[in-house]
Amino acid sequence: MSTVRPTDRSETAATAFYTPATMPIEIDIAHVAHLARLDLSQAELDGYKAQLGDILDYATEVQSLEGDPSTESEHPLGLVNVFRPDERRTSLDRDEVLAQAPESQDGFFVVPPALDTE
């Protein structure tokens, strides 16, 4: 088991906050579920919390990496950003796209109020 706590972003070295200990990894599962917009029951949250703890405990292995790699690239072939001329092109057919929406009207997607007005 290991402890990983929220930390000040100014701390950069992994060792500054990763210390093998007996405390489990802190997971505010309700907060995480809210961030992910998942409306889960308390029983579901409890189950996921336990599983996440196990996986994260394993994942702390990443902190055993010694030294800093000299390169950090997202793409193995070293690609850079792609641009194209700002020209009008054919897009998807609007009616075909809207036909897949749970609810649409007059060429728009229909949603309930964005704000709780109660």
Binding site: V4, R5, P6, T7, R9, E11, T12, A14, F17, Y18, I27, I29, V32, A33, L35, A36, L38, Y48, L52, I55, L56, A59, T60, V62, Q63, L65, G67, D68, P69, S70, T71, E72, S73
Partner: peptide
């Protein structure tokens, strides 16, 4: 949930950032 946690404020460096370093390594 795992991904949201790994990216969330306070845990980013310890998990996601460090994982990207492992990837580069």
């Amino acid at each position: 949930l795992l991904g949201t946690y790994a990216l969330s404020a306070g845990y980013y460096d310890a998990f996601y950032g460090q994982a990207q370093k492992v990837r580069a390594a």
